[in-house]
Design a protein around this nucleic acid. Structure first.
Length: 820
RNA sequence: GCCUAAGUGGCGGAAUUGGUAGACGCGCACGACUCAAAAUCGUGUACCGUAAGGUGUGCCGGUUCGAUUCCGGCCUUGGGUACCA
């Protein structure tokens, strides 16, 4: 399956050959993979929609199910996706994420002869140099050889172990990675170099899905192998001399090999290749590169998405003819899942069974499919012959700058890179990387306030999912101190209650049996529509959790930063109880999180737009800090930006608000302010340093208002420069200045270095590296003259106390340093 | 554990190739205008000290006339990732 065909090659095959090839590779394209199937919802869920084995909405049980799905053979491009990273301007951490995801490892396959029935066991290792340190072999419990090689004496133990592994959930396995388990199969493998017999074990620490699902264990060099050997009391061969201390494994590559036959005396680093070559010479293995990356599951059981352009005949997929394309999504009002695990398209029988013996595929592609290459269409959007004309593609080329979040690192950004490489290989594009430069903009984060939630144990709840009223009893030192009603709705939510004491016990009473039901305590988000970290006010959206309404009411309740508040209305009786008075405290714990609708911590920009205007909001966001940095939203400094815009506006207007722009010739000083600003803005925009651009605009407005400049020749270029930052105000000023056309069509002003030239410089005079004074000298003054003047000055005399300094450093246009 | 980014005033943050640390803004203090308030304007604001001066960019050390910037070793925080052989 290491071949692929270009479009020309593919078309050159006749239909029969094409079908034979398709059959041959069918499993690569159409794979059986696990999906999360939720019976109650009748649908397939993504991994992140499943939490603790139940659906994230509603808490319904979810099972893994095998389904036939399309997969994208991204593995074919693993090497090129890795190589391509070298030539693109992505952040190092983004490249690192992609490298890790691709997970290249260079190593070797080694065949071991087994003592049972001539079976061969192939392992993948990155360290063939340690071949003489192999003390046992481990194969994954799912490995196909397990059943075949287990000896009759070990059969019982192996089967017991396999049962144990099967009983373990994914969650348990992930949580208990340190737990050492395994079983001996009774089989031995023969070291191909020295004939040593090595026991073959099975253990879940070896993953079936990576490499060959089998490893050669070198306990002196590998931590996991070492622990396994110690746990099962297996012998440990030391091949690295003093590098192995007998207490822990040492994965070094620098040791000189011992007990290693023909590798003795060699440094491990060099021996890797020597051993690899020898394996190939003797025909007992070969050097090989492995990748962690898997093919991407490309089927979704959803309505929206590109349908697969294939037709099934006798259950075999055939690619549709180019002349039949595009295959469009059928119109439908029925977006419900089919209930069988297939997507909504399966409901449209006429579309699926469009011809007597032919069927379509009910799967659709993920959004990644379109997202990977839609930008190419913008280059030539009205073309009905091709996705874009070659000329347009050549003209526009790669995306210069792509601003996007880092959460797309291992999906979208990898698929887009792959897609462009494929189109390049098919001859459509002259470039094979979509994005020249990637900027990961920082997120404006929100502050979530967390409160605790107490609800009945989930096993009780899953049997009582209908809406009902329960009573929560609170005990302190086995004494019931409070009781209050709580509504459990269909999904088991809305039972949120807050408390802030650790010595309290919470119990529910089942209304039908009068039995106490154990509780479980979770933490959940309280929501605030506004939040001020500096002793301000919070609005807690508590009604979302307490309301009996099916749709939560968003009723803000005011309380202070000290984070307790007394709630006395809407049926909350427990606050009326004198004993429970203290319980009415709502204690919250603030946490900075991504702003997200599902996190209930979003801030609406509308209120800021209402009181300050959209330009202020826009500029303030830029002013907050570097583009790539995440920061929690707060409005503490927004007045500064608002004041700037008013000051800028006032440059054009008198106190009565009438335009007062003059057509007089600008002074040299005014021109200097203008060009200095334009220069800085241009540089900052090139480097995406918008926060410093805003501060430069502020400096400029301060300077111009202190010299009372109102000249058109100065202000007009500034309005254009400001327009990307504050488009509305800029457009209005532009119009007021008498322009009929929009400012968007104005030419961006460029600066003239001529106005920035200085003749004198105010030198900082430092003594022993510490600045003590300032002195003005002409920029063309010689070093010697400056030195003389500095040494003769009062301040320097005071410090030198008449002595000759050791050294005087004069850096023209920068600094003078006197060393005593 | 590994990879990666970052630690600078009360706060958000500036500082081109090593060259005046704290730009700009917020906040705070004082002052002007006002009967008053708001708005606006002005002055000050790293820390210690009355001052001269001293100390300061996470910590320890190094290179240099000079280090937020370069080098070595740590600490902390954010992000990513993991029985991947």
């Amino acid at each position: 399956s290491k071949e692929y065909f270009t479009a020309e090659e593919w078309r050159a095959f006749d239909e029969k050959t094409q079908q034979e090839i398709l059959m041959q590779y069918r499993l690569s394209y159409l794979a059986y993979t696990d999906v999360n199937w939720c019976e109650a919802l009748g649908t397939v869920l993504a991994n992140d929609e499943v939490i603790n084995g139940v659906s994230y909405r509603g808490g319904f049980p979810v099972v893994k199910k095998q389904m036939r799905q399309w997969s994208l053979r991204i593995t074919e491009y693993a090497e090129r996706l890795l190589k391509g990273l070298e030539e693109i301007d992505f952040s190092e951490s983004m490249k690192e994420i992609q490298r890790n995801w691709i997970g290249k490892s260079v190593g070797a396959l080694i065949n071991f002869q087994l003592t049972i029935d001539n079976y061969q066991l192939t392992v993948f290792t990155t360290r063939p140099d340690t071949i003489f340190g192999v003390d046992f072999m481990v194969i994954a419990p799912e490995h196909e050889l397990v059943k075949k090689i287990t000896s009759s004496e070990q059969k019982e133990e192996v089967e017991k172990y396999l049962k144990y592994v099967e009983s373990r959930s994914e969650v348990e396995r992930m949580a208990e990675v340190k737990k050492i388990t395994g079983a001996f199969t009774g089989a031995y493998a023969i070291n191909p170099f020295d004939g040593r017999e090595i026991p073959v074990w099975i253990s879940e620490y070896v993953l079936a899905g990576y490499g060959t699902g089998a490893i050669m264990a070198v306990p002196c060099g590998d931590e996991r192998d070492y622990k396994f050997a110690r746990h099962f009391k297996l012998p440990i061969t030391n091949i690295i001399g003093s590098h192995y201390n007998g207490e822990e494994a040492n994965p070094t590559k620098d040791a000189i090999l011992e007990n290693s036959n023909f590798l003795n005396g060699m440094v491990m680093r060099d021996a890797i290749d020597v051993a690899g070559k020898k394996l190939e010479e003797l025909g007992i293995g070969k050097r090989q590169i492995n990748y962690k990356m898997r093919d991407a599951g490309w089927s979704r059981q959803r309505y929206w998405g590109e349908p697969f352009p294939v037709v099934y005949k006798d259950d075999l997929p055939y690619a549709m003819e180019e002349s039949e394309l595009p295959l469009e999504l059928p119109e439908s009002n029925n977006f419900k899942p089919s209930g069988s695990g297939e997507g909504p398209l399966a409901n449209l029988k006429e579309w699926i069974n469009f011809a007597p013996d032919l069927k379509r595929d009910s799967n659709t592609m993920p959004t990644h499919a379109g997202a990977a290459w839609y930008f190419l269409r913008y280059m030539d959007p009205h073309n009905d012959k091709a996705f874009a004309d070659k000329k347009a593609l050549d003209y526009w080329g790669q995306v210069d700058v792509y601003v996007g979040g880092s959460e797309h690192a291992v999906a979208h950004l990898l698929y887009a890179r792959l897609w462009v490489k494929i189109l390049h290989d098919l001859g459509y594009l002259n470039f094979d990387e979509p994005f020249k430069k990637l900027i990961n903009q920082g997120k404006i984060t929100g502050i979530s306030q967390w409160i605790k939630e107490i609800r009945p144990e989930s096993s009780w709840m899953s049997n009582h999912t209908t809406k009902q009223e329960l009573h929560l009893y609170i005990f302190k030192e086995n004494k019931n101190i409070a009781k209050f009603p709580v509504i459990i709705n269909e999904s088991g939510h809305n039972s949120y209650v807050t408390y802030n004491y650790t010595d309290l016990e919470f119990k529910y009473k089942d209304p039908t049996t009068d039995q106490f039901i154990p509780t479980i305590i979770h933490e959940g988000r309280a929501t605030f529509s506004d939040c001020d970290s500096d002793g301000g006010k919070f609005y807690l959206n508590i009604t979302r959790w307490l309301s009996k309404e099916p749709k939560p009411k968003y009723k803000p309740i005011l309380f202070t930063n000290n984070a307790y508040w007394h709630y006395e209305k809407e049926g909350w009786t427990f606050f009326d109880n004198g004993d429970a008075q203290e319980l009415s405290r709502i204690e919250t714990r603030p946490e900075v999180e991504k702003m997200s609708k599902s996190f209930l911590n979003i801030v609406h920009p509308d209120e800021i737009v209402d009181s300050y205007g959209a330009d202020t909001l826009r500029m303030y966001e830029m002013f907050l800090g570097p583009l790539e940095q995440s920061k929690p939203w707060n409005t503490n400094g927004i007045d500064g930006v608002f004041k700037f815009l008013r000051k800028f506006w006032n440059l054009f207007h008198d106190h009565q608000g009438n335009l007062k722009v003059s057509d007089a010739e600008p002074s040299r000083e005014e021109l200097k302010v203008l060009h200095k600003t334009l220069k800085k803005i241009e540089q900052d925009m090139e480097s995406f340093s918008f926060n410093t651009s805003v501060s430069e605009f502020m400096i400029c407005a301060n300077e111009l208002s202190s010299i009372k400049c109102n000249k058109r020749a100065i202000l007009e270029p500034l309005v254009i420069a400001l327009s990307p930052f504050a488009p509305h105000i800029a457009e209005e000023l532009w119009e007021k200045l008498g322009h009929a056309d929009t400012i968007l069509n104005a030419t961006f002003p460029s600066y003239n270095e001529e106005f920035l030239k200085e003749s004198v410089f105010n030198y900082p005079i430092s003594i022993n590296g510490k600045v003590r004074a300032e002195m003005k000298f002409a920029l063309d003054m010689s070093k010697e003259d400056i030195e003389k003047m500095v040494l003769a000055s009062d301040i320097v005399m005071k410090w030198t106390e008449g002595k000759t300094p050791k050294k005087v450093i004069v850096v023209p246009g920068r600094i003078v340093n006197v060393v005593l």
